[in-house]
Computed example of a mutant assay.
Amino acid sequence: MEKETTSMLKNTLLITLLIVSFSSQAELVGYWTFEDGLTDSSGNGYDGVVSNSNTELDILGTEANHYVNFGDNSIALPMYYDSEIESLGLSIWFNTSYSSPEYEYDGYDKDTHVYDSAWTSYINSSLIDFDRSDYYSLVVTGNGEIMFSYSSKASGTWDLYDIVAEGDVAYNDGEWHKVNVNYSEDGGLQIYVDAELILSEIYTGYIGGVGNTRYGFIGDNSEAETFNSGSNNLYYNGMIDNVAIYDDAIAEEVIIDSYAAEVSTYYDVPLFNAPSSLCLLFLFRGRKNRGSRMRHAGPRTRDIDN
């Protein structure tokens, strides 16, 4: 009973914070806390299912918080896109130590504008995915970078990621991090990690519009034209929690405030014993854009429905 009450309080607190904060802006489309299995806590009915019925999905955690441990499975979502996406907001907590020393940017072919299969295998796919070559995908690279990829009928496929240079923080450090992605005409593309802006790029047009339907996955790459019908089986290695999708960009003050409200769930220690990056955030609320790369991968004609 105590465990159930604690989980209900956590759900209520987070959903109230998210819905009230966004009442004048973005609307919550889907929200998976994993406190009640794979139920969509947004109220929109997008309850997930284990994509591979032959294996189990590990839902771990404490009485105060549950999360999914991935490795050989993913979550299929009964949510799909079949038309253009004008704007988007994403919010996800993740924890991974996956690293690929073989990961290199040389896997990108500038002539054909595609990544080779070997390069793709070094990507820790995916935090959430509705097919990079039709809509969008959010991944952690083998170097511990955050990469957001999306496709547009007007401008082709783009891969955007922060550059991890020597001395920079990589996000495959085995610690919990929160990533927020905004995409809108007003603000362009913005990626935040732990309430810190790490990447900002221009708006390049609506996402999608190629005429295909794609259902989503948490923890894998989607190729699904119908619910739970196809993925790349490249399973994300690590843990994921509190996945939220919005229909518009997330205000920066909401990103900061929600991170501050949620972080104690993942770091059950006083602020002054928390990771140094967290202490600096609350002391200075500083921002930096440590550099980014934008790659135009071109339209993948094999996916275009003529």
Rank of each mutant, 00 (worst) to 15 (best):
M8W: 13
L9C: 01
N11G: 08
L13R: 14
T16N: 12
S24C: 11
G30M: 03
Y31H: 04
T33P: 07
E35H: 10
L38F: 05
G43Y: 02
G43V: 03
D47A: 11
V50A: 10
T55I: 14
L57N: 07
T62E: 15
G71F: 04
P78L: 04
M79F: 11
Y81V: 02
D82G: 03
L90F: 08
I92Q: 09
S99V: 07
S100H: 04
Y105Q: 13
D106M: 15
Y115F: 12
Y122D: 13
S126R: 01
L127C: 04
I128R: 00
I128P: 00
D129Q: 04
F130R: 00
R132P: 03
R132E: 13
K153S: 13
S155F: 08
W158E: 08
W158Y: 09
A165D: 14
E166K: 14
E166Q: 11
E175D: 12
W176K: 02
W176I: 02
W176F: 04
H177N: 03
H177K: 07
V179E: 02
V181A: 04
E185D: 12
G188T: 00
G188P: 10
L189T: 07
A195R: 06
E196A: 06
L199G: 10
T204D: 11
G211N: 10
Y215R: 01
G216T: 00
G216R: 05
I218D: 03
I218V: 14
G219C: 09
N221T: 07
S222T: 05
S222M: 03
N228L: 02
S229C: 05
S229D: 12
Y236M: 08
G238W: 14
G238A: 07
M239S: 15
D241E: 07
D241N: 09
A244L: 04
I245N: 01
D247I: 01
A249T: 01
A249D: 03
I250D: 06
D257F: 10
S258P: 06
Y259G: 06
A260K: 14
A261T: 04
V263K: 14
Y266E: 07
Y266G: 06
D268K: 07
D268W: 02
L271S: 11
L271K: 05
F272W: 13
F272M: 10
P275E: 06
L280R: 14
L283T: 08
R293V: 15
M294W: 10
R300S: 09
R300C: 12
D303V: 13
I304F: 15
D305V: 14
D305S: 13
N306R: 15
